[in-house]
Structures are given as C-alpha cells and as structure tokens.
Design a protein around this nucleic acid. Structure first.
Lengths: 131, 131
DNA sequence: CGGGATCCGCACGGATACTG
DNA sequence: CAGTATCCGTGCGGATCCCG
C-alpha cells in the first residue's frame, strides 16, 4: 500500500508540475478550438466587431466566441474596446503579444502544410495494414 | 426559415472546411494532452519502452498512453518495434517526421517561456480589475 | 510486460431564451 | 448589437478487469 500511495503522490506532484509548466498552459490555450481561428481572423482582418467575428467563424456558438474572447482578453492577447454608441459597438484587436503568438501559430501552420500529406499517406498505409 | 437554413448550410460547409484544414488537424493532434509530452520524452530519451514512458509521464493512464502512441504511430510520427522476447519488449522511437514536429513544438515552448510571464501578469491585472 | 475491453462520471460545448 | 444565464446531451478520459 505504501508503494501505491507513493505513486499517487508522484502523480499529484507531476500534475502540479504540469499546471505550472508554461508550455502546457500555452498548449491548453491553443487547443481551445477557436483560439487559433480568432487569432488568424484578427491578424488578417485587423480590428473586428463581435458580429464580424461571429460571421467570419461560421459555426461558432456565441457562447464559445465570447468565452474565447474573454480568455484572450484576460491573457492580454486581445483588446476589447467598447464605444458607447446606441446600440453599443465593441471592437476586438490583437495586442503586440497576441500578434507575436499568432506568428508562432503560423509556424505550426507552415509545418502542417508542409507535412500533413506525409501524415495522410502514413495513415492510409497504417489503416490498410490493419485492415 | 430559408435564411436560417442557409446559415445552417454555411456552418456545415465551414465545418467541412475545418476538417480538411491541415493546420486544424495538427492542432487537434497537439491538443491531445499527452502528445507533446510523449514527443518530448522520446526526443530527449531516445527510444523508450512502454513502461519507461509510463513512468516518465507520471499521471497518464495506460489507456491514454496507448491511445496516444497508437495515434502517433498511425500518423507516422513514431515507430513501434516489438521484440518477441519473453515477456515481450516494445520499443517506441521518433521517426524523422516526428522529430521535425518536435522541433516545431519546441518553438512553442520557446514562446511560452519567453512570454508566459507577461500573460500571467496580464491575468492578474484583469482579475484585479474585475474584482 | 504491454496492452485490449468495458463501464462510468463529469466537464465541455451547443441550443435556447432573455437583457441592457 | 453584444452579450449573460440556463439547461442539457455526449464524448473524453479515468478506473478496473482481463489476456497472450
């Protein structure tokens, strides 16, 4: 039992370590389905309004869009500017930090476009072999 | 109703587009909680056995570890070598493709280590403001 | 040792309705 | 227009048991 308990403790410690790990946190952010899309939309289109984003990312629920934007704003990656017209106008834009993150994401995109064909053929071979 | 139906259709089309998108697929892979960790472990430690990986990534369930390894093998990112000793020995290693992906992931890690402090302080400010 | 199969909880995301 | 609040289904991942 003592061995099992030690294992348990190690897992907890490792989990804590992972929560602290900056890379892990970044990965968790990016894995949010819409983060990369929002980043790309804002990087390409400049500052955009809520409804523009909603239209651009067809398929996103407003709940997810809001949630994503709040998270990005909280992380200092986008700015949210409210103009008190009637009705209200809200503009979203990338911060320099957000723009730099987008640059990194574009590296990912680059790898994807360069190598995903290899991955695809690997998959087909694998599936054919196991069939 | 026709407008709503058109919206629906647009969403379906966009969803299909996203499924085809190489970057999206890559992001989906990386977002799997353990993929990056396995990549890092193999890149650092060279070829490793199943139980070595399990020990190194304390906290992973064997189901997830197996699932992750299968997915990576299917994508041609790692090799799985079975040596029919008694009991069986299974070695996992990175393919060149897997190694190149790991290089990209390390860029992410670089960004994370360089900027996550900014993110952290941004969060604290945000939380303080909303409190 | 290196898994496969199964059951199960719960958290994440979608749909809907309402508001300033 | 730009959200907030609420309900709800399901799918991901953990735990457990078993096998070659």
């Amino acid at each position: 039992m003592t061995a099992a308990q030690r294992r348990e403790q190690e897992k907890v410690t490792y989990d804590a370590f992972l929560r602290e790990c900056p890379s892990r946190q970044l990965l968790d952010r990016l894995s949010d389905k819409w983060v990369a899309l929002v980043l790309a939309a804002l990087a390409e289109g400049g500052s955009m309004r809520y409804s523009e984003l909603a239209r651009r990312l067809a398929g996103v629920s407003q709940k997810m869009l809001t949630q994503t934007l709040r998270a990005l704003e909280r992380d200092g990656l986008v700015t949210r500017t409210v103009t008190p017209t009637v009705p209200v106008t809200v503009e979203y834009d990338l911060t320099p930090l957000g723009a730099s993150l987008h640059a990194v994401v574009r590296h990912l995109k680059g790898w994807a476009e360069a190598h995903m064909d290899d991955v695809r053929t690997a998959r087909e071979e694998y599936d054919a072999r196991s069939a």
